[in-house]
Design a binder for these strands. Sequence first.
DNA 1: CTGAAAGCGCTTACAG
DNA 2: CTGAAAGCGCTTACAG
Lengths: 338, 338
Amino acid sequence: MSTIRDVAARAEVHPSTVSRVFSGNAQISDATRQRVLLAAQALNFQPNAIARSLSVRRTKTIGVIVPHVFDGYFADSFFPQLMAGLLEVSYARGYRLLVGGCNGYQDEHVQALDILASRQADGIVVTSSRLDVDTVGALQRHKTPLVLIGHPPAQHADVAWVDADNCAATRRVIGYLAGKGHRRIAYVGGDPDSSVVKERLEGYRAGMAAAGLPVSEEWIDYGYFAEDGGYQAVERTRRSASAAPTAYYAANDLMAIGILRGLRERGIDVPRQVALVGTNDSPEAAHLTPGLTSLRVPYRAIAAAAATLLIDAIEAGRRPAGQALLESCLIERESVES
Amino acid sequence: MSTIRDVAARAEVHPSTVSRVFSGNAQISDATRQRVLLAAQALNFQPNAIARSLSVRRTKTIGVIVPHVFDGYFADSFFPQLMAGLLEVSYARGYRLLVGGCNGYQDEHVQALDILASRQADGIVVTSSRLDVDTVGALQRHKTPLVLIGHPPAQHADVAWVDADNCAATRRVIGYLAGKGHRRIAYVGGDPDSSVVKERLEGYRAGMAAAGLPVSEEWIDYGYFAEDGGYQAVERTRRSASAAPTAYYAANDLMAIGILRGLRERGIDVPRQVALVGTNDSPEAAHLTPGLTSLRVPYRAIAAAAATLLIDAIEAGRRPAGQALLESCLIERESVES
DNA sequence: CTGAAAGCGCTTACAG
DNA sequence: CTGAAAGCGCTTACAG
């Protein structure tokens, strides 16, 4: 591959002149610009982006770490929507994504820190759902811009973030079910340690309280976002026949599908006898029998907002600031009787 | 951020010594290694990856361009599986992915060439489904390793590639349907210009011929991979009542869902009156009523194989070579009567 | 085992 | 508008 000096030699100018015609921002006479461009073309020259990055200290790249080893991570609609939102705005603003894998929660932070410390990206979006104070502190210690998808711990009011209205949305769903006459409503979360799941649980309790409904701890269960987890939750939440839930809210659709299967095996009709609401409005939701009422979370818009916040900050040479809470929307289908 | 010289100053050694302890491969006395490590820790030093990349001419990054503007690209299971396979092996081998968007077929090649020419990645995997001879030639002109997901044009026997057995698999599906007694079988492709769709059509024709079945051109239609495209294909393929197909093969599940809807609206029962086979075994396939028999394409394995081919070549300092054809597998459900 | 120097391929402040 | 020089932060062949 030819370099700027090869081109300079051929065009009989100084290398800095070649640099100037390629970096755009500089006054160059038309004549020499033509000479340089011709020489460049003849030599098939294109500037080396790495060398440029080192020189200008910008990589035009934004980092993101994905927990690629988790079962079902690539089956859920979260990942593609995240990438869609990130790519959409990155592309529009001339950036690319530096995507790294990680083999677990701990490694997720290790990898994110590595990208920051090695300055391979101009900014990073972190999607971890279990950030503790120390980790956020460590991430913030770098001057490289950072935006979170999800809530930071309360102590870090200074980090920029974008999130879905998990608590409020779940609360609305519970209110919706209570409005349909349900009094015993079950909550099936994913991983109890993840912040989304905690926020949704909070929304569940708030919704029950607002509707004046008592909560039995038997109705709260965790399916770890897996179909089988939902299936097992049916078993565990229906030990007491008299206090068996007449409605289920699941923190993703996969678990809702498992719940549906569990209920069906017990001869319980959905929605006649029991109502069911899932989350994420995944592709299968519309095609189930009955169609699954599901809480659609605007992941794509969230990712796009995060990327915008990040790139704005990068280009302004400051830390990202601000936060956004995007609204989820309940898609009504047949799994709740109207 | 501190640099190698700051650390050198504090540890009272030459910068090259600091470099040596961090780049691993060098004989360093334990004593000075400790001194350097301590100084580095005190200064929170981590080598700048960009500077290292420029120096060693390796970025530890592999490039991939995704057509992020296409409707449905992020809804299909192709994209997440592609990323899953790529990330799995990249991570294991210490690489990250440089993912760029593109706004169409033409731009896909432009972006890929840009990554190659600007040497931002050590290699690239190209997934375009409509590569012409010139484009492949242009891509190959760069010495940066390249592997294709999909077939290259015949003239480029020298490029490495990995693909699914599109033609053979479709042929098997047709044989399977013929074996069930179907004689009028329809083919609903995606985008007629894409090579996968062409290969499947070839398999369709071969399968029909092998079963001794005549083909009516009315049975060949294109739904552009969209649900509505499948729906419309029903209309177009059933103009002649006497020659109406009794079986449909669709090049993705989304179109199969559209076909199912179209048939249902006409009061045609699947699988009683008409059989239906989709492609990709997407999440919704199992949950349809009837369950959709679908050709599962091993995209994840294909991507993993491509990444392996690529990284092997990068590390050996040669061009990638070889090719692999991975087998698809028919997942039988209820949309074909047994 | 360690130092001094040159180099990776750009950019840009400084002159003129 | 263009040149000459220094610098971005590493690596590594060459000495010793």
